[in-house]
Design a protein around this nucleic acid. Structure first.
Lengths: 157, 157
DNA sequence: GATGAAAAATCCAACCG
DNA sequence: CGGTTGGATTTTTCATC
């Protein structure tokens, strides 16, 4: 992964619908080598997938809720089962296992409070949890899937 | 946006590199009407963009940190400026204005603790903030950009 | 690796029920 | 709205440097 690959990544993270020829010209390369670089990054898993990003408001899922969960003392198997079940819930967009007092942090996308309440009930009914805190987002100020891939940001990796 | 559009969205949110003919056959449509539906959803902004999703570990940005910020009492202009400045920082992947005691919640992607420390110093130097709390993720259990678009999930919108 | 060009696949527009 | 056809564009492969 050299500087050219990173430039390609920066472009494709913003717009993956661009023709390879266009990407190539922007990184001062001709089509084929550029195409091979993209291909290689897809094979090696640097590029995980290409997706369409949907506007949550447009499909009526504009409410983001962050859920902080303390699981309490539990076995590794219990925790694994918890993670698997939460993962399978479609409203759950992100799940992180955290350091510190909160064990898991979830981002939930729902239509409104009533729907969130439904989700919350299903969540706490799933398994016994020590503590569950809901924090509601008023506004999504920034949301990007594009990681910074410039020299400075990655430490020249 | 009918059920067919939602089916198309579900597919494209998972893999937008599929040829239209493939999408069309999966939703029992021929190529052109399917293509027209996709086109329309792009024009109306339901589909915001098509992007490549990069594996953060593969580019050395595997550390996720959540930052909770209390700004304190400030004017609308001050808050707007704050939002604009934070938004412009490339390590910042998500920013939410929150209800409750925490004013903003940020998700930061960095390479390691040292880099996070650098980000933190730049953040607090930006403007005076009442309180800043960092929470570190040990593991990303789930991350998806695909909103649930089934009948049940959207309330039949 | 890079290049240019040809072959294959895909997109998109024109046109019809 | 949906379907079919075909030219334009793009992707992908292949020789050549």
């Amino acid at each position: 992964m050299d500087a050219t690959d990173r430039k390609i990544l920066a472009i494709l993270q913003e717009d993956s619908s661009l023709p390879v020829a266009e990407v190539a010209s922007r990184v001062n390369l001709s089509q084929t080598p550029c195409w091979r670089r993209i291909q290689r990054m897809e094979e090696t898993g640097v590029i995980r997938r290409r997706v369409a990003l949907v506007d949550p408001d447009a499909i009526g899922l504009g409410l983001s809720v962050f859920v902080e969960i303390e699981t309490g003392d539990h076995s590794a198997e219990w925790l694994e089962r918890f993670a698997r079940e939460v993962e399978a819930m479609p409203e759950v967009m992100e799940v992180y296992r955290m350091a510190g007092d909160v064990d898991y942090l979830l981002r939930i996308a729902v239509a409104n409070m009533a729907e969130y309440d439904g989700f919350y009930r299903r969540l706490v009914a799933l398994l016994p949890l020590k503590n569950v805190t809901s924090r509601f987002a008023m506004e999504r100020v920034k949301y990007t899937t594009a990681y910074p891939v410039g020299e400075a940001a990655t430490g020249g990796r």
